[in-house]
Design a protein around this nucleic acid. Structure first.
Lengths: 160, 160
DNA sequence: GTATCTGCAAATCCTTTGCAAGTCA
DNA sequence: TGACTTGCAAAGGATTTGCAGATAC
């Protein structure tokens, strides 16, 4: 089963082990299937954000008959249970990550497509403001900010 | 579904009139077609963020034979020229807005779908930090931040 | 045993593309 | 006229759905 890797080496490892997953699913009346466990493991083992297609490939390697619709249905369920989160990097497809994957943010250049990782702390004050002023608990685990990167600004070229 | 609250009722004047549009298109070697004018007008006249489908409907009302592919191609062009901008509210479809529409940001509740508008100033310090520390010019005209809204946090219910 | 899940196939939704005909400059 | 644009139709990719058979409990 899933060996959960935590890139930052936090002491509170294994937020979801097999037992807690089972418990969490069961207490809501859901069943524990191998597909669900493998799918969650794929997400947790991925250091990066992972797409439904990526998950499907990983799962299919061990479980040849799975169907991608099962992946989507399971993702829907895990989202609802708060066990996985979405991030949209503007690629026309959604990516997923679990609680355990490192918190960081991305600057996505709309000109050259470059993705720059930035520090978590850069957005932490924003989270505080949103919570204080709007009572809104922002999901800032993985945020994409669009714009123009330094290099492209220096080029300052354009057009056709 | 998505309940949209819009505190600001600004009616912005048109930054791009027919003459400046024509100029801007021509200087890049593009032609001025009625479709392009109507599409841009639809975006500018929309107080809200407007989807390609919305634009298509508006255009089709006056220009019955337009095809939605023309809308997409024109949007691509106007984006390249910096005359319209995209915003992704996580609906599985992209919305568009022009320079003229008010700058503001959205808190999108992942639980109930509510969209809460927040003030531009809330993110202005973030823009400064990103520019100063990363040389990154963030496109923060219209930003969507995902999370859980106050009401849903109070309910604290879940699943199924 | 039976309600929940899954695989399969087909459908849906949004967006893109090839191509021949139409149009702006 | 001739390059740029469009309409049309068809393709494309991501995600969803109906349904009958399989499975967890």
């Amino acid at each position: 089963m899933a060996e959960t890797q935590h890139p930052h080496g936090h002491s509170h490892s294994h937020v979801h082990d097999a037992a807690s997953i089972a418990e969490r699913l069961r207490e809501k009346g859901y069943r524990l299937t191998p597909q669900r466990l493998i799918i969650l493991a794929a997400i947790e083992n991925s250091d990066e954000h992972i797409s439904a297609e990526d998950i499907y490939e990983q799962v299919a390697a061990r479980y040849p008959n799975v169907n991608i619709s099962t992946v989507y249905r399971t993702l829907e369920l895990l989202k609802k249970l708060g066990m996985v989160y979405e991030i949209d990097l503007g690629e026309g497809r959604i990516r997923f990550h679990s609680e355990g994957s490192g918190h960081h943010h991305h600057l996505i250049c709309q000109s050259c497509g470059r993705v720059i990782d930035i520090d978590e702390a850069t957005l932490s004050s924003l989270r505080d403001v949103l919570l204080r002023e709007y009572g809104f608990q922002a999901e800032l685990r993985h945020v994409g900010v669009f714009g123009i990167c330094k290099k492209c600004r220096e080029k300052k070229s354009g057009g056709r």
